[in-house]
Design a protein around this nucleic acid. Structure first.
Lengths: 204, 204, 204, 204
DNA sequence: CCGTAACCGAGACGGTACGTCTGGTCTTTGA
DNA sequence: TCAAAGACCAGACGTACCGTCTCGGTTACGG
């Protein structure tokens, strides 16, 4: 009997919502995620704090949505991985692009903050994966399926695991900053993953 | 020459330091990392807050050290990866153990929190990598070098990148919680990485 | 025009204000002024510290207001000095009452602390004088003016200075604790001040 | 074996004591009494904090002693009130000098702070009165006694109370800052106190 | 077309923790 | 053997945000 009141989203102010997106993105760009506060976003957006608390559960949720909104405007950017017939070349192309993105501060800043928050907050992590990560993983999945059908992959592979062989190491270097992310690294990754590390062919 | 006032570490109280370690670990275990506060650690350890601020730059730094101290006591746990001659089997053994660790809340809790903090704080991230991550990566490096010398690996491999083919995907699933971490997953990873995804052998 | 952010006093919580008054007075009575802290007042009043910092500049200011509020409730206590026609007797009556007040711990405690703070903090001192001291001085001023009109005082006297001849020595003994404050002292003061110390009458 | 050890004052370091005096006076002059700390005095004097705590009970006690030490060096300044035979003139001379002192920031600063502390701390107040106030009051006492013997004062006066008729009002204005302290004020005070306020002579 | 029920901007509120500062005590080290 | 140096426990300081709560005002239905 305490609240149970879901706000009426049909009466929601688009004006406020977009002002909040802009303020959130601007603040994260200016002072970083950690020093961005809900209070600061509200003030910058010229919005009452309650308007934020009414519609979002956390600062991270605000930023994730703001980020998705931004990405949505630059829509159609989810181009497909090209299929030139040369799987290795195609994958290298895309991994190199990913490396560039990870090295680009404009992308790295907010994404890294969201990822970190998601590491620790499962609900947000699920959102992060679903909304940001999965879409790009689907690209790999489709390209690999095409390769499989073309007979370029060993039969019976679990394609989900296969694609993690590419993006796993990349993400590892990105998040943990163990070593620099370069185009060479991306290329080597593709070669190693496609052709294996071992001398011997698989027994099966 | 970095700071104006460096405290004299020779006069540091071991008593306090260990009380702080214990309090920090206990609190993280009881209420979680996010709700653990420096104030709380100080109170629990029966220590002035300044004693913490004097020696550590952040809550995360305290916990990292506490965690390392704990690991150090259970020393010699850094056993070597066995070398039975069967590289795949040896790797699977260790990857499975790692999977178990990642699924163990007692390990997952603090480590995940530290990793998340390290994602966002480069200085801490470097510490995390150097003190916690690298040592275990060295195990893989040594086992792979042995395999290379035994002729089990394709010559000329960059072993650092090779080992990331195993731990990258594992870390990916662990941190981002995309899909469950199982022994089967570990096994498959080893097979895929050792023998490659592609039908064709490498051209070179 | 004084501050950058003046809080909106129309939205101020009377509930909180009075809880703060009560807590402040209670704490000063219980542990003394010096050991009363803003933190303690806030905790005792069930109020956030910011609510105190928002409305008062210092602990002393809180207590002064609390004290005035208390005095205001016991309103109308500012009775007039009686005018029986016998100036000396009337003054003695009031000075004796003042002596009693100064010897009363319940009054002495907070008032002394405020006075001491005012000695050192001019802004607070001005408040102290204006709100606490002046009103009672006005009583003397009126009684003396009546006496002047009745021809009981030498013509042309500066009445402000005249009244300080009574309250100055009293305050001196009170604040500096040089010698005990007694009714006899008050009586003597009145006699000396009214009739002078010298054998000779004034030349003028 | 805990404390109960009165320090052996014969082994006290004069060097340290004077360094502390100088540091205390310098700090009070530079940043004011309130912002002077024992820690600061120790650091400035190149002395351990314990050396201060060993010999003095409080910051105020240090400053009082430092101040007395300073005054002691400029010794012999305790000149007598002149006795020209004209009591009023002599008193005015001295009261005017006192007024000037009270208006002199170099004197006002530390003395006011000590007085304020003494208002609130009886032990210190007693010291303040005994060491700083009483000596100058003795001057008045002697001059008044001379006047009494010369027949210039009404017989049977309590000279202690008589002198408070002069210094009480002065101190009142000084500490409470009710109104400006001027030479005129001092003169008027002397006239009023010597010749009384009332028209009628005393009945006795 | 006029009430009334929401959302809205604003910001005061009770809280919690921050990181700093100082008070007084205790310990180590060099002269 | 003492004093310098300063680490230690303790806890208040004043600030920053949190998330909740009024408060008017301003839409935008729904009777």
């Amino acid at each position: 009997m305490t609240d149970t009141k879901a706000p009426d989203s049909s009466r929601r102010s688009d004006r406020s919502r977009h002002a909040i997106y802009e303020a959130a993105l601007a603040l994260v760009a200016e002072v970083g995620y950690a020093r961005t506060t809900i209070e600061g976003i509200a003030a910058r957006a010229g919005v009452g704090k309650q308007t934020i608390y009414r519609w979002w559960p956390s600062k991270a949720a605000v930023l994730l949505e703001a980020y998705l909104d931004l990405a949505g405007q630059a829509a159609g950017d989810e181009t497909e991985i090209p299929d030139t017939g040369d799987l290795a070349a195609d994958l290298k192309l895309v991994l190199r692009a990913t490396v560039d993105e990870m090295n680009n501060p404009a992308y790295d800043g907010p994404t890294r903050a969201l990822a970190a928050e998601g590491v620790v907050d499962p609900a947000l992590g699920a959102q992060f994966v679903e909304k940001l990560l999965d879409p790009s993983l689907q690209l790999y999945a489709r390209r690999l399926r095409a390769a499989e059908e073309a007979g370029g992959l060993r039969p019976g592979l679990d394609l989900r695991i296969a694609l993690e062989l590419f993006v796993g190491p990349l993400t590892h270097r990105w998040l943990l900053r163990t070593l620099p992310l370069t185009h060479d690294y991306a290329d080597t990754l593709v070669d190693y993953a496609l052709h294996g590390l071992a001398t011997e062919p698989p027994r099966s």
